[in-house]
Amino acid sequence: MEEKLTQRSVWEKILNKLRKRSLWMLHYCTGCGAIELPPTMTARFDMERFGITPMVTPRQADILLITGYLSAKTLKRVILTYEQMQAPKWVVGFGSCTINGGMYWNSYATIKKLDRYVPVEIYIAGCMPRPEAIINSFNVLIQRIDEGKANSWKDYYENYDYYKKNQEAVLGKFDTLVDIKDDAKKFNIV
């Protein structure tokens, strides 16, 4: 093995093995993408065989699944939700709306690039993506967690000024009641 085996890295590897099989998902359903989730969760495609279940509160969720387009108003709620989640946390952008505005690209209120406002781990392309695509993307996420590559959430702590600047350009000044820079010290990121 190339990298050094410290006590910390060994623990991290074990934790990642455990994490990848118990992912709790908070789905933020703003657009039409929500219609693809019931078949994904229930008997036909059965997401739970990979250890993924829906979770009702952001405090206990690992994945934030954003289905469909975001307007300036809902983006604020997404940021508030995202900052409440406990790290490690992963955002999955679902559908072409989160990638580039989708079919609502020329609206005055639709957010175009989600990764300017919160760090996105995986995008699922399509309008709409089928449940197979969702499950496939979750499998990719599981694999990345296992390999220790799913570190997009750290980017929010490292480059908080960049995200904050983009958020305030759209939403104006607002307070999220979460001290991100203080949190970053806890994770030994800054």
Binding site: I99, N100, G101, W105, N106, Y108, K112, K113, R116
Partner: peptide, 17 residues
């Protein structure tokens, strides 16, 4: 007289594809 497309193109940034 509010031209939505013009506003959206100036205000937001788009992904090159």
């Amino acid at each position: 007289d509010f031209i939505t497309r013009e506003f959206a193109l100036n205000f937001y940034s788009y992904r090159e594809y």
